[in-house]
Amino acid sequence: MGCISSKTTKYTPGYEEPTVLAAETPFTISEVEALYVLYKKLSSSIIDDGLIHKEEFQFALFKNRNRKNLFADRLFDVFDVKRNGVIEFGEFVRSLGVFHPNASVTDKIAFAFRLYDLRGTGFIELEELKEMVSALLHESELVLSNDIIEAIVNKTFIEADTNGDEKIDPEEWKQFVLKYPSLIKNMTLPYLKDISLAFPSFIITSEVDD
């Protein structure tokens, strides 16, 4: 009779092997394991089912259960690749991987495009952009009149929509970002460069050597 290990670990639903995720992202295996510790904490903060729900995501960002923000909403939706209303572990790691300093600029540009493509049509449309600017300004303390917002959005559109079809496609977006690189500045989190140094307590639980 074979020997069966008595060590059992209960993983969350949608768990994926760190070796697989490390191969697909800029993270090492032990960093993925550190992210799993973080994931477990976030995914049980409000609803203890091992999956990150939108309110848990927003709670982690704002430390406030009632705080809502359109951009946080968009981030959740883009992290939730399967569009099933929760962020699974693999989605969490792959999405965070895009924010890694070593991730490709192409991936960052594509991720940012999905954030702005509110309705998921494959294009950033004029109305979507107006909606987003209005909503975000409404949430922030910056007060601009509708006329000014409209003028800013229209001017941006004329510049970005180089083929003049009233929507920004991924290639036009790429060219626009290359012209204004600060637009993807938020797409890089230096913290992710070495999670094990920034969060040494997470790494103690590591079971696999890289």
């Binding site: 987003m132 941006t156 626009f176 600060s182």
Partner: peptide, 25 residues
């Protein structure tokens, strides 16, 4: 000045949080 920014810069600047908050203990 907000008026001199393009719409995407305006969105980026008005973002009031960082994903780094996820890592706060």
């Amino acid at each position: 000045k907000p008026v001199s920014m393009n719409a995407f810069e305006l969105i980026s600047r008005s973002r009031e949080f960082s994903l780094e908050n996820l890592f706060e203990k």
